[in-house]
Design a protein around this nucleic acid. Structure first.
Length: 884
RNA sequence: GGGCGGGUAGCUCAGCGGGAGAGCGUCGGCCUUACAAGCCGAGGGUCACAGGUUCAAAUCCUGUUCCGCCUACCA
């Protein structure tokens, strides 16, 4: 298809497919393993194998691709490391659901068969999201794709576990943890989501032993009373202080409960007396530890009441709650029930309510690691952007609790620990041991738990590059340049990568952390399947094209603010793609007609110098914006330059010289067009890679691809503020005439004469660009007169700087309409003038303000004054003409 | 309870010490051969509220209020 036969509207589907294949076939995403000088690297936040592309991924990966493409074009050896996460619980749940459809549980298959089944599923459907990322245009180095459970990464996991254990940073013990009765595993504190729900506060009477006194306790979970082993009061509480040391008697059960004094008990909450259940409550566990209290476990891993729960044994936790309350009431122990909002902890994977339960778990002692991670941000080795997240990061690192890393599921990295059945020795080792080092017994049993999925994610920046081996890749690309992620995994992932990177690589994992927004729907709601408000990125790409979608995301990605995505916005940027396409359709024939013409810098017209200057300003802005993660600013600059400067003004103006075939002006204009289009496509390429490749390859067939740059640099010799100012004046003249035309209801097709009264440089500016002004304002004739000359009679007037612009409208103009128009305009000017004048006559302003600010106001005053004078004269003239 | 972000044109949002901006929508006029997914023009805001700092405040400080999020052992 020849350049002049391009389709009228941009059609993305075929073009996107073709270019992505081209990039891949030619290995254009591939990073050099070895250091070549300037390296740039990003590790992808590995999507879950269960996942399919959602808006969060789309935003996250679009931003990364912009950074990657930008740096690649700037000549960096650029690595974007892709891969996926095995996503322990999430994936196991998916496969368990599949089994459930066959009426099977994982127990029916057994561990080995179950894991086999997960792998099968992973191989079969786990790659979907990778293809979706390709659809999005992501230029990842696919040859290096990793998976958190592949062999290399599993080796890294074992190595880290063993070394942490050897350093005393991993321990195993009985502690109270968050337990999900549905997923049947412990969860870390982070994996519990807190949610308010309406519940009740039950007040229960606990008699004091050998006394008439009674302690009333308040609880939101009455069933846990079965496991009470104490009642705690604040030792400073005068109501109860005398009871400390005595015993209370647990209703229904009859167990003796120590009454202890502990200052976590809030005097002003409930009754000021707290029932203590060390086995089933986090706070109570700690009280129990302080006072050496007995543990009575009354609930099992399924959330059912154990034998310790007397006749409630076997009941589900909520069933038991009802039964207990009923019995308490019947026996007169229930004082009252208040409606109360309770904070429920829910499993972040299955949303079931978690139970605090005591069990044997593995923990990472994080305090020493966290301290390093905190310091690295404090001293600037890693910068968090936007900066305000730094405080959140510090707070978390400071108040961090040990990390429970064992999970009672099957899908994941099995903990590399063995117990000797003969002597009980625990062996933690990189390779499977055959004999017990303690007793030489061979009956070794491996730990059945697997590691928290975030344990392997924490190693991602170096495990993907071959660690624990010393590899050229690590040498070249670690620390990575930036991590791009959402704030929802700041603690889960970012903080832990910091800790592990510093511990095992002795350096931060990334120099920058860029935290982007959350994508919400039009109403500001978080997109979720259950709300039914998700916009599917794939459908969007089908409908509007990938480039339009990517540009939308970038344009909305202002720092520190969530994104509300709406289809109309994407549609707007789809139109932008079409605009780019059509400007190319316009330019190509001219470019093709002058294939060998080089832009002659000494023969540039004013509009040429203007657009080249604006182009370079845009280059400067875009570079600055991308380098500071101001994606929306970059998008805004590009949009404005492309549409409102290049298309609206430059191309329109260029039609005049281009139409003069076989002239140097036509040739040079074509050369400028080619220069600007080529640079523009390069500037836009990181944002909209497909259309820019297509256009660039048509503009200059010499370049097979622009993916490797170069990215335009600022050419100071083309910066021309003088040309910009002159062009601004011309545009103002043209606009003023167009405004008159529109406001006077003159048919756009009707050519009009105009008279401009100007002197000096103004006059020569207008004279030398008279044809441009005439063309763009659609004038039949443009006369330039001296200011002293008689101005046209019945004419609509405008003022531009010191110039008067007249459009003679004898017989068309209604003096009253023109008077009203001028008065309105004058009103606006005078309002501004008054404000400026007030400043300039204020002695405080004149003595204290910055001289530059004063100068600016003075200039402005002069400008407004000239305009005002011109308008007043025009007005007076019109009034006298009317009365005459 | 603590923390963070936000309240600017009808909508979505930029701006964050010296002339209130953009996109979309609205209104009026145009099929001007690159583009009607377009072109030309217009209208529209006491920048949440109240104080303060400053010659100057949408912009800085304090308080109030409303919204959103994160975090927390008041059961």
């Amino acid at each position: 298809m020849g350049p002049d036969q391009l389709p009228k509207a941009y059609e993305p589907v075929e073009i996107e497919k073709r270019w992505y294949e081209y990039w891949q076939e030619n290995k254009l995403f591939h990073a050099d393993d070895h250091k070549v000088g300037r390296e740039y690297s990003i590790v992808i936040p590995p999507p879950n194998v269960t996942g399919s592309l959602h808006m969060g991924h789309a935003l996250n990966n679009t931003l990364q691709d912009i950074l990657i493409r930008y740096h690649r074009m700037n000549g960096f050896n650029t690595l974007w490391m892709p891969g996926m996460d095995h996503a322990g619980i999430a994936t196991q749940n998916v496969v368990e659901r599949q089994l459930a459809e066959e009426s099977l549980g994982r127990g029916d298959l057994g561990r080995e068969k179950f894991i086999e089944r997960v792998w099968t599923w992973k191989k079969h459907s786990g790659g979907i999201i990778i293809n979706q990322l390709k659809r999005l245009g992501c230029s990842c180095d696919w040859d290096r794709e990793r998976f958190t459970m592949d062999e290399g990464l599993s080796r890294a996991v074992r190595e880290v576990f063993v070394r942490l254990y050897e350093d005393g940073l991993i321990y195993k013990g009985d502690y109270i943890v968050n337990w999900c009765p549905r997923c049947h595993t412990a969860l870390s504190d982070l994996e519990v989501e807190h949610e308010d729900a309406s519940g009740s506060l039950w007040h229960i009477r606990y008699p004091v032993e050998d006394s008439d006194e009674v302690l009333v306790v308040a609880t939101t979970r009455p069933e846990t009373m079965l496991g009470d082993t104490a009642v705690a009061v604040n030792p400073t509480d005068t109501r109860y202080a005398h009871l400390v040391g005595k015993n209370a008697v647990l209703p229904l059960v009859g167990r003796k409960l120590k009454i202890v004094g502990d200052n976590v008990v809030a005097v002003d909450f409930g009754t000021g007396a707290l029932k203590v259940t060390p086995s089933h409550d986090m706070t109570d566990f700690e009280i129990g530890a302080r006072h050496n209290l007995e543990h009575v476990t009354i609930m099992d891993s399924n959330g059912r009441i154990t034998a310790a729960g007397i006749h409630f044994q076997g009941m589900d936790r909520y069933e038991c709650r009802k039964a207990i309350v009923k019995e308490l009431e019947e026996k007169g122990f229930l004082v009252k029930v208040e409606p109360y909002t309770v904070g429920l902890g829910k499993c972040y994977r299955c949303k079931d309510v978690v139970e605090p339960l005591i069990s044997k778990q593995w923990f990472v002692k994080v305090a020493p690691l966290a301290e390093q991670a905190l310091r690295a941000v404090e001293d600037g080795r890693t910068t968090i952007i936007p900066e305000h997240w730094t405080k959140t990061y510090y707070d978390w690192m400071t108040n961090i609790r040990d990390w429970c890393v064992s999970r009672q599921i099957w899908w994941g990295h099995r903990i590399p620990a063995w117990t000797c059945r003969d002597c009980g020795e625990i062996i933690v080792a990189r390779e499977t041991p055959t004999l017990c080092p303690q007793c030489s017994g061979s009956r070794l049993e491996q730990e059945t738990d697997v590691l928290d999925t975030w344990f392997s994610s924490a190693l991602w920046p170096f495990s993907t590059m071959g660690w624990p081996d010393k590899t050229p890749l690590l040498d070249a690309f670690y620390p990575t340049s930036v991590l791009v992620t959402g704030f929802d995994i700041l603690f889960f992932w970012v903080a832990r990568m910091m800790m592990m990177g510093l511990k095992f690589m002795d350096d931060v994992p990334f120099k920058d952390v860029y935290i982007h927004a959350l994508v919400r729907d039009e109403a500001g709601k978080k997109m979720s399947k259950s709300l039914g408000n998700v916009i599917d990125p794939l459908q969007v790409m089908d409908k509007f094209g990938t480039d339009a979608f990517r540009f939308t995301l970038a344009a909305l990605a202002a720092q520190g603010r969530d994104i509300r995505l709406s289809e109309s916005r994407i549609e707007g940027y789809r139109n932008f793609m079409n605009k780019i396409w059509n400007s190319t359709r316009f330019a190509l024939p001219y470019i093709a007609a002058h294939p060998d013409v080089v832009m002659d810098r000494d023969a540039l017209s004013l509009p040429d110098r203007w657009i080249l200057s604006r182009l370079n300003a845009t280059v400067r802005d875009v570079r600055h914006s991308i380098e500071n993660y101001l994606f929306n600013d970059a998008a805004q600059s590009l949009y404005h330059f492309t549409w409102h400067e290049f298309c609206d003004w430059y191309i329109e103006e260029a039609k005049l010289p281009l139409s003069q075939e076989n002239t140097p002006a036509a040739a040079n204009t074509a050369a400028v067009l080619r220069h600007v289009l080529d640079a523009l496509m390069r500037l836009l390429h990181p944002f909209i890679p497909f259309i820019t490749e297509e256009v660039a390859s048509k503009v200059d067939s010499q370049h097979a691809t622009i993916i490797n740059g170069p990215f335009p640099t600022v050419d100071e010799s083309l910066m021309d503020t003088k040309a910009e100012n002159l062009m601004d004046t011309l545009m103002e003249i043209i606009t003023s005439i167009r405004t008159i035309r529109a406001e006077m209801n003159i048919a756009p097709g009707k050519a009009l004469p105009a008279v401009i009264m100007a002197s000096g440089t103004d006059a020569s500016l207008v004279r030398s660009n008279a044809r441009v002004v005439a063309a763009l304002a659609k004038l039949s004739e443009l006369t330039v007169n001296a200011p002293a000359d008689e101005s046209p009679k019945m004419a609509a007037a405008a003022v531009v700087g010191d110039m008067r612009v007249f459009v003679p409208l004898q017989g068309i103009i209604d003096p009253d309409v023109e008077i009203a128009r001028l008065q309105k305009e004058l009103g606006k000017i005078q309002k501004d003038y008054t404000a400026v004048n007030k400043k300039l006559t204020n002695p405080d302003f004149m003595s204290k303000a910055d001289p530059e600010a004063i100068k600016k106001q003075q200039d402005r005053e002069a400008e407004l004054s000239a305009k005002s004078t011109g308008l007043v004269q025009a007005l007076e003239k019109m009034q006298s003409l009317k009365s005459a």
